[in-house]
Computed example of a mutant assay.
Amino acid sequence: MRSWAINNRYHHIALWIYLLIVVAHWAEHISQAIQIYALGWPLHEARGVLGVPFPWLVHSEWMHYGYAFLMLVGLILLRPGFTGRAKTWWTISLAIQAWHHFEHLLLLIQALSGSYIAGKAVPTSLIQLLIPRVELHLFYNTIVFVPMVVAMVLHMRPRPEERAAMDCKCAARSLVTTR
């Protein structure tokens, strides 16, 4: 079966575009944490980089859900381009993001219905019942990002048998060569 161009000819560029989107999202969460913990901003004013000029973004469950969905779709679409150890790590990231997506879907449904779980005053995810939202999203983004990066590194530096099974030229384009 022939794979999509995104998983062979364009896999390398697709991975880097995807990584850029993920890192930009990370920057938002990290800047929000800095605003809260380093700068002492009140939680309602700590809105990340884009949230300062566009505060509605932070409060939009559609925007948060859309990003979680985009992450899930990217992980699914790019997965067939991976082999061996890299595919295992990418799949771990995908599984964690599937749960993260579910939590955002739950938040979106609550926002749309006006009915919140556990008697809370705002949309609340299941794990958010245990961990505050800012910290929870830093955690989620970390546990999705780390295996994703491990997968990308292993993909760019495959073992000979993994390289032989690859349809893309990501390893050939890698700036680092392996022996």
Rank of each mutant, 00 (worst) to 15 (best):
I76M: 07
Y140E: 09
L43P: 05
V146D: 00
V52R: 12
P42L: 09
L112C: 15
W16N: 04
E103A: 04
A86G: 13
Y116I: 07
Y37Q: 10
T142D: 02
S31E: 15
M152T: 03
P80L: 04
L39V: 07
E135F: 02
I76N: 06
A121G: 11
R133H: 10
M148P: 00
H101V: 10
W41N: 09
E135G: 04
Y67G: 06
H44F: 15
I76Y: 06
P132G: 03
F102S: 14
H29T: 14
M1R: 13
I76P: 01
W4Q: 14
Y10G: 05
V49W: 06
R2W: 14
S125V: 03
A5F: 12
N7T: 12
V22S: 04
R79L: 06
Q128C: 05
T88D: 09
H104V: 02
R47P: 02
L130Q: 12
I36C: 04
A24S: 13
R9K: 15
R133Y: 06
S113P: 08
K87Q: 15
V149D: 00
I36M: 08
F139H: 04
W89H: 01
M156W: 10
A5W: 12
T177P: 06
H29P: 11
H64Q: 13
G114S: 10
H29L: 15
M152L: 11
F54G: 12
I96T: 00
A121L: 13
L175H: 09
I117A: 06
A24E: 08
Q110L: 06
L72T: 10
F145V: 02
G66C: 06
F139Y: 10
F54W: 15
A121W: 09
C168D: 13
G74E: 00
I96V: 07
L154G: 02
M148Q: 01
G51K: 02
D167M: 10
A86M: 09
R179P: 15
E61Y: 08
E103Y: 03
S93E: 00
L19C: 07
Y18H: 10
T88W: 10
V176E: 04
D167V: 11
L175M: 11
K87R: 15
H100K: 03
R159N: 05
C170L: 06
